[in-house]
Design a binder for these strands. Structure first.
Lengths: 335, 335
DNA sequence: CTGAAAGCGCTTACAG
DNA sequence: CTGAAAGCGCTTACAG
């Protein structure tokens, strides 16, 4: 049915070995033969059977991305960055997401085994024990946004701490003496780091002002509730720094409803720089994370590891963030 | 290195054939044997080599998604829907995007060949000739949002026409007698359909009012320019219907800058219902497209075709849209 | 430079 | 119910 290497060989009156060599660029073939074989392969629309090739080369030319979810701008940007870099390396991309719990993530990891030459893993369920149990040692992997600091793995993180630290400092520098923080889910790595950044910056640059933290869970709704509680409290802070943009959007709604004007009565800042941050009124001051770059860098690292399996030096790398000042913190409205 | 079926067979003191049968649920194996083999396979962490299996079964348990891009909410939602359904069917998902031109798309199609059991194709470069040249007849495929109406393929479209028609009618019903339309790129299938919907609805329900079309290209910037030209024109329309939400956002900016209040002076509507539509002020009236559902339906169709290759009846199906009334058209603000 | 042959790890008629 | 054997479509030492 499908045309195989034998069909090409027969047509070209050579052995299948020669066809293989010619098409794979082996030097042990005359240019003339190669040209003739190539022409015939093209005419026959021969495409090598990837499974057969994988079986013998032990390579699939495919990388897997294990993600907890596919919802929202963060993941689409991440995949975009990965995909772009994968194309550049001639690698296919297998995605697997929607893992509600550790068992599902483990199953997904197992299902990918043998189908990929390496994996990009971003999952809240991943810890050292999970990886030992579910990831064969032999398969190259890069962990994204992981608390894990093991010499066993390559880890690529966003500088949540530095970003939050810088934002807190920026708000203080802008003259907002009291800053409240709306935190993310307690078990979320990003959320923890951002909170630490806020707390430390407060301790360093405003040692007299008390840190004030209201709990949220990254959802707009939780930001709304946090905003209401801050607005109703006896003494609203001069600035509110939400651990992500969606909660900042919720705060904004709460403040508007409570008669607090942003930035006049209270400055507001978020984290992530999702598109909405730019389009709401007032535009949201936030910390920009170059998510596509994260995906690209992760793939580059993985590709390197795949190509040089001998390399044993695994490192943890952190990608910088950038404070973006917009109207919500009273700064100049920048694009 | 990796554990193979032979290792399991040796350990269980049976033939590889029995291991294969036991693990694949063949009835020709005693429950006892199966249990023992399963236990051993598990202990050894045996995972069947997918390439070897594919080579003989001619199945990869993988579907490919060919997309022009991965940028923005539309594609992330689409992939999310596809991924969810794929998981449910036990299928892996290979994504391939970023095809700037027809040649790149063709190369991507070829590269996927042999790696997937079927394809989901969404590409502006795809037409009948392209598919004839690059898609083997034998491989099941579902086209998304394609102008192609061929009995050769399954096609799944969004009801761009119906949605635009309904929105236009809604605006007219709400009392906005003059409606201007900001069009999308001329060569874009969605854009064409939306424009047709607007034009036809105007002709039917407001035969005396002239249709008024300003060119855009789906970008926020083009919407901004269109908005400026409408605001500056001698007589601004009572309502503006942009062919997508991003252009509506641009219009809003232009109107605010020109001193036109929305919805008081001019009503505004978009198409897509991206998240931003909900969060801008005033919230944007728009046409909601259930993109994740589109992805899911497409995968279901593909899975059906893969499972029953005999089915020759290919059909074109259209997914309905829904008018979402928010503050920008003066309607009740609905969530 | 070219070919015959082995072998990658599976599945599945075919015997028994 | 179980096993020996063929074969899926490739690549790559090994000879020549």
């Amino acid at each position: 049915m499908a045309v195989t290497i034998r069909d090409v060989a027969r047509e070209a009156r050579v052995s299948v070995a020669s066809v293989s060599r010619a098409l794979n660029g082996s030097p042990a073939v005359t240019d003339e033969t190669r040209a003739r074989i190539s022409r015939i392969a093209q005419r026959l629309r021969y495409v090598p059977h990837s499974a057969a090739r994988s079986l013998i080369t032990k390579r699939t030319q495919t990388v897997g991305a294990l993600l907890p979810d596919l919802y929202g701008e963060f993941f689409s940007e991440l995949i975009r960055g990965i995909d772009l870099a994968a194309r550049a390396h001639g690698l296919h991309l297998l995605v697997s997401s929607s893992h509600g719990d550790a068992d599902e993530a483990a199953a997904a990891l197992r299902a990918m085994q043998g189908r990929v030459d390496g994996m990009l893993i971003l999952s809240p369920h991943v810890d050292a024990a999970f990886l030992r149990a579910n990831l064969p040692e032999s398969i190259p992997a890069v962990l994204l946004n992981s608390a894990l600091e093991s010499p066993q793995f390559d880890v690529l993180n966003i500088d949540n701490y530095g970003g939050a630290h810088a934002m807190t400092r920026h708000l203080l520098d802008a003259g907002h003496a009291s800053i409240a923080f709306v935190s993310g889910p307690g078990d979320n790595f990003d959320a923890q780091q951002r909170e630490r950044g806020y707390v430390d910056a407060m301790a360093t640059f405003a040692p007299k002002a008390a840190a004030r933290i209201v709990k949220g869970d990254f959802s707009e709704e939780s930001g709304y509730r946090a905003g209401l509680s801050l607005a109703k409290g006896g003494k609203p802070p001069r600035a509110v720094f939400a651990a992500n943009d969606m909660m900042a959007v919720g705060c904004l709604r709460a403040f508007a409803q409570s008669g607090l004007r942003v930035p006049h009565d209270v400055a507001l800042a978020g984290f992530d720089d999702i598109p909405v941050a730019h389009y709401i009124t007032p535009a949201l001051t936030t910390v920009r994370v170059r998510i596509a770059d994260l995906g690209r860098d992760a793939l580059e690292r993985l590709a390197t590891t795949i190509e040089k399996p001998g390399r044993t030096c695994h490192e943890t790398q952190t990608l910088g963030c950038e404070v973006v000042v917009r109207a919500s913190s009273g700064g100049t409205q920048k694009h």
